[in-house]
Amino acid sequence: MTDAIYPQVRIVSERLLNPETVERVMNLIVATEGVRRAILNGPRIPPTITYGPAKGQPNPHEMRKIIKIGDQNVELQVHVGTILLELENKDVIPAIRAACEAGFRDLPWYLQEGRFMKTSPSLVDYAKYGPDADKAIIGMADPGSKSGPVIIQGIK
């Protein structure tokens, strides 16, 4: 769950992003030292084919790559189109804008301030994940997922 005191921003680009662009932008964003949590959103790219006669076969895809953010490897599971950030305070927003400006280069993008993550678990969350689900993840990703969040250390 997010805490209401932390500001949030959403960064949306005109096109769905290549892994190289995501890596470039995210490293610049992470270097601003003001990000508490981040989610990379976009349409999912499954590792295996999910439907049809080829079901279960591997699904090689150029956009499903492992990128390096900070010193951590992050396996992209989506074709990134939106970046959600929870920030330490509002003062970092200009630095985030500057990072996006440098990272996206010629690609059009925009940044919105608002509330994009859940602030309290819903009834459906309770029904799906039970009372003991990790509240830090509810509203951001599936708490039942085996792959947990990636923690990027050593940026401060």
Binding site: L16, L17, N18, P43, N59, P60, H61, M63, G81
Partner: peptide, 19 residues
């Protein structure tokens, strides 16, 4: 078939989950 209403990729191709 998902892709009709999605943004295009950087190279201008329509999104295809199965590429």
């Amino acid at each position: 078939v998902h892709g009709h209403s999605l943004r295009l990729a950087e190279d201008g191709m329509m999104f295809d989950m199965m590429q």
